[in-house]
Design a protein around this nucleic acid. Structure first.
Length: 259
DNA sequence: CGGTTTTGACCCGCGC
DNA sequence: GCGCGGGTCAAAACCG
């Protein structure tokens, strides 16, 4: 009569798995908080040690000046191309997508592709084709550590304007590419905004539920970090990515020499 | 048909 | 000088 319901067994198993995942999630959240505290300490130490100000380009990252330039999020490009002499942009893409296309508001013509020694993923070479004689080139290659990321290296300065239609396409809801991290070689020129395409790489964490209210005060950095931590720990994509990274770091740890 | 992509060949700088 | 690796060229293929 009261035969054991196989569904009950399944529910129990799933519940156990869920509890296990919740524990792992909590552990990862704690790890993230520790990392955040360490970052804060390092940041404060750096500020104490450095006699001069951060370069403008660096302050730009912490102050999220993208939100100053693009108050309307619907018009905010996720990637801004630097006009600095050389800069790097990391763009998150669908790892299943084999193409090496980084939509950044400019039109590019591919002129070469190479497999480099240290990275099995091919590196693609592009020239800007929006204007004749534009000297800007870019190299695009998948990150060795995480194939979901494309690393684009820009060289040169554009001698023309950006196509706004291409730039806006970046912020379309269906766009899968998101600029996550960027870096540039700071030049004296890069700190001086000279035109709308001034040398500035900006950052949009694009966090679900995060408060991106702009603030001009550096004192807000701590509050912002806490907000980011809270938002990130609520983001299932982030926790999954972090879990993968932790797992990878564990796997890649050098094994102790066997006796 | 014109612009773009592909891909093998070539060039050049660097380390040994 | 030689080999290696990264960057570019250019002809053919492809595409709208």
């Amino acid at each position: 009569m009261d035969a054991p319901n196989p569904n009950n067994e399944k529910v129990g198993t799933l519940r156990e798995e869920l509890e296990q995942l919740q524990k792992e999630n909590e552990a990862l959240r704690l790890m993230l908080e520790v990392m955040t505290r360490k970052y804060r300490l390092l940041h404060e130490a750096y500020l104490r040690e450095s006699n001069s100000d951060f370069p403008t380009i660096c302050r730009g990252f912490t102050r999220f000046d993208l939100h100053e330039q693009f108050p309307d999020k619907s018009l905010r490009p996720e990637v801004q191309v630097s006009a600095a002499s050389s800069s790097q942009v990391f763009v998150k893409t669908d790892p299943r997508d084999e193409s090496l296309i980084v939509k950044d508001g400019f039109q590019w013509r591919k002129y070469g592709q190479k497999v480099t020694k240290n990275n099995p993923s091919p590196r693609a070479y592009f020239k800007c084709s929006m204007a004749p004689g534009c000297p800007v080139k870019k190299k695009v290659q998948r990150c060795l550590d995480d194939k979901a990321f494309l690393m684009a290296t820009y060289e040169g300065q554009h001698n023309h304007d950006v196509d706004p239609t291409i730039g806006q396409s970046l912020s379309s809801p269906g766009s899968s590419a998101t600029a996550i991290i960027s870096a540039t070689t700071p030049t004296s020129e890069s700190c001086v905004p000279v035109n709308p395409f001034r040398p500035s790489i900006t950052l949009d964490l694009n966090l679900s539920g995060s408060n991106h209210e702009n603030s001009n005060s550096d004192n807000c950095d701590d509050k912002r970090i806490e907000d980011c931590v809270a938002a990130m720990t609520k983001d299932p994509d982030f926790t999954a990515a972090l879990a993968a990274a932790v797992a990878r770091s564990i796997v890649e740890q050098p094994k102790p020499p066997t006796p």
